[in-house]
Amino acid sequence: MFIRGYLRASTQDQDANRARAALSEFAIAHGHKVATFYVENVSGAKLEREELNRLIDDSHEGDVLLIEQVDRLSRLQADDWDDLKARIKDKGINIVSLDLHTSHTALTNSDATDDFTKGMIKAINGMLLDMLAVVARKDYEDRRRRQAEGINTAKAKGVYRGRKTDEALHERIRMALEGGQSLRKTATVVGCALSTVQRVQKEMKAAF
Rank of each mutant, 00 (worst) to 15 (best):
I56T: 01
D63N: 09
S74M: 04
D71M: 03
S10K: 14
K138N: 13
R172I: 01
L7N: 01
H30A: 10
L66G: 00
S74L: 03
R18C: 08
V200L: 07
K118I: 01
A154I: 08
R72S: 02
M204W: 04
A106S: 05
E51C: 05
K118C: 00
R87W: 11
N41S: 11
D90K: 10
R8M: 04
R145P: 06
D79H: 10
Q12E: 15
A35Q: 13
I95H: 00
G31N: 08
L129M: 10
D82H: 13
R145I: 12
G5A: 13
I121L: 13
L98C: 11
V42L: 08
G119R: 01
L100K: 01
L7F: 08
T196E: 02
R75V: 02
R87D: 10
K155G: 03
S110V: 05
T165W: 06
V39R: 06
M120G: 03
Q14G: 10
G31R: 09
A187H: 00
S43Y: 07
A21V: 12
A78P: 07
R72H: 04
T117C: 03
A78L: 13
Y140D: 09
H101W: 07
N152D: 15
R49H: 06
T165V: 14
L52A: 05
H32C: 11
A168L: 13
L169W: 03
T11V: 11
Y160L: 10
D80Q: 12
K85V: 09
G5M: 11
A193C: 06
R163M: 08
R8S: 05
Q69C: 06
A19E: 15
R184Y: 14
G126F: 01
R72G: 01
E178Y: 11
N125V: 08
F116W: 10
T165H: 14
K91Y: 06
N17S: 15
Q14W: 08
D90M: 09
K91D: 12
R144P: 09
T36I: 12
H170R: 14
F208E: 11
E40N: 04
V159S: 14
L128Q: 12
E25K: 14
E203K: 13
T113L: 12
Q77G: 11
N17E: 15
L183C: 05
E149L: 14
I3M: 05
D13V: 12
D139L: 07
M127L: 15
M120R: 04
L7M: 05
G62A: 03
E48W: 02
A133Y: 01
D114S: 04
R143G: 11
N109C: 05
A19M: 14
A123L: 08
K155F: 07
R18N: 12
K185E: 06
V39Y: 01
T165Q: 14
A123Y: 02
A206C: 06
G150E: 02
K118W: 05
A112D: 06
N53E: 10
R145V: 09
M175E: 15
R172K: 15
T36N: 12
V135L: 14
G150A: 13
G92A: 07
A112L: 13
